[in-house]
């Protein structure tokens, strides 16, 4: 075979290969265009329209929805409650999960540790909407087992209205969301703890370092860069508590547990409670505004990842 003929065969091979390569890309490209990029762009466009129900036409209204949104006290109320979920819920969950992870990694080991990990992870596997419905029974002030326990042991005089007392509902929802997703944060911490090289502990033990010193000098410094990622992931989860809250309280009573996602859903699909028509354009505006507000979190995450990879390089 002459060299030019060989190059020709190679080129033909290469062309055949390229055909297959692009064929392999097409399904991913099409589905992503349909279910990621189109909805994203469309929701930005919808947010500029007045659109009352799917059968209705859309009227372009410019930024009118946004102007209304920034003056809407119900929106800002829900925004504030979402921030409560982040600013109070995240430190709570991340801190408690770290303590438990250190206990399960350093004090309790082997099978017992695996058993506890399974137990604490179990609620993560449950569908949030289903577990929300179950919890409305468990916490019911009439006939619910928790209420029965509290009143029959004398811990409380009257049944506690965990989900129907407007001053309590948001905190109950936050506590239950923390319970439901705690196992995920625990798993992140356990994964981070696994990166502490065993030799470090051995060396420290040889130098006569105690448990507390090992924790402060070895474990915690290794964990610091991971903590940024774990905080960001947990914050992201706490901004998406729709299914659980919708099933627990539907945002009530009197909007007292309505976080942003529940507000948007009500505006778009369940307007009966507000006595109006579905407002798909206005709901889209709220979604886009909220998306921009949470973009900061995604950027923080990118920064965290560079931090961790820098540390990993150092440790190698």
């Amino acid at each position: 075979m002459s060299t030019s003929a060989m190059a020709g065969t190679l080129r033909r091979h290469r062309r055949g290969e390229l055909f297959w390569i692009y064929l392999f890309i097409v399904p991913g490209l099409v589905l992503t265009a349909m279910f990621v990029f189109y909805p994203m762009l469309a929701s930005w466009y919808f947010s500029l329209t007045e659109w009352n129900g799917f059968t209705d036409g859309k009227d372009f209204v410019g930024l009118a929805n946004y102007r209304e949104l920034v003056k809407d006290p119900l929106f800002w109320g829900s925004f504030g409650r979402s921030m409560v979920f982040v600013l109070i819920g995240v430190p709570l969950r991340v801190g408690l999960a770290l303590v438990l992870a250190i206990v399960l990694n350093n004090i309790i080991r082997g099978r017992l540790s695996t058993f506890f990990r399974t137990v604490f992870f179990l609620p993560v596997m449950a569908a949030a909407s289903v577990i929300g419905v179950v919890l409305t029974f468990v916490l019911s002030p009439s006939n619910g087992p928790v209420s029965f326990f509290l009143t029959s042991t004398g811990l409380s005089d009257a049944p506690v209205e965990f989900l129907s007392d407007p001053t309590l509902a948001l905190w109950s929802a936050l506590a239950l969301h923390t319970w439901k997703n705690f196992g995920m944060t625990l798993i992140y911490w356990l994964a981070a703890l696994q990166t502490v090289p065993a030799e470090y502990y051995e060396a420290a033990a040889m130098d006569g370092a105690g448990a507390v010193q090992r924790l402060l000098r070895i474990t915690l410094p290794v964990l610091i860069p991971f903590s940024v990622i774990i905080i960001v992931l947990t914050a992201n989860e706490n901004l998406h508590a729709f299914a659980l809250i919708q099933a627990l309280t539907g945002g009530g009573p009197y909007y007292s547990s309505e976080v942003v996602e529940v507000y948007i859903f009500r505006t778009a699909f369940a307007p009966d409670s507000a006595g109006g028509v579905p407002r798909l354009g206005y709901a889209s505006a709220a979604g886009c505004f909220f998306g921009l507000a949470t973009l900061a979190i995604a950027l923080l995450q990118a920064w965290a990842i560079t931090l961790v990879s820098a540390q990993r390089k150092r440790m190698k």
């Binding site: 279910f35 973009l295 995604a298």
Partner: peptide, 18 residues
């Protein structure tokens, strides 16, 4: 990268529409 970083908006409405 765009899939991760673009703000989502409220995509369930366009998905229903689509």
């Amino acid at each position: 990268a765009l899939v991760v970083f673009l703000p989502q908006g409220y995509t369930v409405i366009p998905i229903f529409d689509l």
